[in-house]
C-alpha cells in the first residue's frame, strides 16, 4: 500500500525535482500544444458568443482551411498568395453559410442550429475530399521543424512560432471584442438577438463577420497542426480536444479558451511523462476529458464562462 502511494505521490515529483530542465521542456511542449488547442477552441467561442450556436463543424473548418492551403501550394502558388486565397475562400464560406444555413433558421431553437452545423460538418468533409483528395499531405510553410537550445532546454521552433502567432491572434481578438463597435455589437447579439435587431444591428452582417473570423482562426490552427503532423482527415478530430478546453474555460470566454487550452496542454504532457509509466501510458488521450468531467461537476460554466444572470 505504502509502496503504491510512494510510486504515485512521491516518485513523479522526485523525478521532476531531479531534472528541472527536462521538466521545463515538458511544460513548454505542453504550452505550445495547448496553444493549438486554444486556437481551435477560439473558433468555437467566437461563433458561440455571437450566435449562441455550438458549431460542430469547427474542426472540419480547420481541416478544410488546411486542405485548401495545401492544395493551392501544390498547384504552385507562392505561400503568401496561397494564404490570401485561402482567407478569401473561408470568408466566402462564411457568406454561404449565413445565406444557406443561418438565415433560413433564424429564431429557431439552438438545438436546430446545432443540428444544422452537424450537417455542415459532413458536407464540408465530403466537399474537401472531393476537391483536394483524401491523401495525407505534407504542409510546408517555410518554418523549419527544428529544435534549438534555450536556457538549457530544447525548444521546437515550429511549435514556438505557433505559440507566438496564437498569442498575437488572441490579443487582437480580445481587443476587438472589448473595444470596437462591431465587437460590442457581437456581444450584444450573443445576449439578445431580437433586442440587437431592434436597435438596428443587422444580424446578417454580424454572422458573416463571426464566421469569417472563425474561418481565419481555423486557417491558423489548420496550418500549425498541419505543419506538425501532416494534413489529413483526422485533423478534424482535434475539434474533440477543443471540447474539454471549452468546458474548462467557459463557452463564452476568449480568455477561457486560451487558458483552458494551456491547462489541458500542459496537464496532459506532465501526466503522460511522469505518471504515464505507472498506468502504462496513454494518459494524454483521456486526461482532458476527465478534467472536463470534474469541471462540469464543480463549476459548469467553466473558469471564465458567463454566469447565468437570474433575477428573482
Amino acid at each position: 500500500m505504502i509502496d503504491v502511494l510512494q510510486h504515485v505521490v512521491v516518485g513523479p515529483f522526485r523525478d521532476i525535482g531531479s531534472n528541472p530542465a527536462f521538466f521545463g521542456e515538458v511544460v513548454i511542449g505542453g504550452i505550445l500544444a495547448g496553444m493549438l488547442y486554444s486556437l481551435v477552441a477560439l473558433g468555437f467561442v467566437l461563433i458561440f458568443k455571437a450566435s449562441g450556436v455550438f458549431n460542430f463543424a469547427q474542426g472540419v473548418m480547420v481541416l478544410f482551411a488546411a486542405l485548401t492551403l495545401v492544395g493551392l501550394l501544390e498547384r504552385g502558388l507562392p505561400v503568401a498568395a496561397a494564404f490570401v486565397v485561402t482567407a478569401a475562400v473561408m470568408i466566402a464560406l462564411a457568406f454561404v453559410i449565413e445565406r444557406v444555413v443561418l438565415r433560413p433558421l433564424v429564431n429557431q431553437e439552438h438545438i436546430i442550429l446545432f443540428m444544422a452545423t452537424i450537417g455542415l460538418n459532413f458536407f464540408l468533409e465530403g466537399f474537401g475530399e472531393m476537391l483536394w483528395g483524401a491523401n495525407v499531405k505534407k504542409l510546408d510553410v517555410g518554418i523549419p521543424d527544428r529544435s534549438f537550445m534555450m536556457a538549457g532546454m530544447q525548444v521546437n521552433q515550429l511549435e514556438l512560432s505557433a505559440g507566438v502567432i496564437a498569442a498575437v491572434i488572441v490579443a487582437i481578438l480580445a481587443v476587438f471584442f472589448q473595444k470596437t463597435r462591431i465587437g460590442r455589437a457581437l456581444r450584444a447579439v450573443a445576449d439578445d438577438h431580437e433586442a440587437a435587431l431592434s436597435i438596428g444591428i443587422p444580424l446578417k452582417t454580424i454572422w458573416v463577420v463571426v464566421w469569417s473570423v472563425a474561418g481565419l482562426v481555423a486557417i491558423v490552427a489548420g496550418v500549425m497542426w498541419g505543419a506538425k503532423s501532416g494534413v489529413q482527415f483526422s485533423l478534424s478530430l482535434i475539434a474533440l480536444k477543443a471540447l474539454p478546453v471549452l468546458i474548462l474555460g467557459g463557452f463564452e470566454s476568449v480568455a477561457g479558451a486560451i487558458l483552458g487550452g494551456l491547462i489541458i496542454g500542459v496537464g496532459e504532457k506532465i501526466g503522460e511523462v511522469y505518471w504515464g509509466p505507472l498506468v502504462g501510458g496513454a494518459i494524454e488521450n483521456w486526461f482532458a476529458y476527465v478534467l472536463a468531467l470534474a469541471f462540469l461537476l464543480v463549476r459548469p460554466q467553466g473558469l471564465f464562462g458567463e454566469k447565468i444572470i437570474e433575477r428573482v
Binding site: 450584444a188 439578445d192 431580437e194
Partner: peptide, 29 residues
C-alpha cells in the same frame, strides 16, 4: 432604425452581460 424609428420591446430586453455604458453605446450602432 436608420429611418429614425426605434422600438423599445416589451420586457426591456437589455443586453445583460454588457455594462450600462456598453448597452447605450450599442444603441448608437
Amino acid at each position: 432604425v436608420r429611418h429614425g424609428i426605434v422600438q423599445v420591446m416589451e420586457g426591456r430586453h437589455v443586453f445583460e452581460h454588457l455594462t450600462v455604458d456598453e448597452n447605450l453605446l450599442t444603441g448608437a450602432y
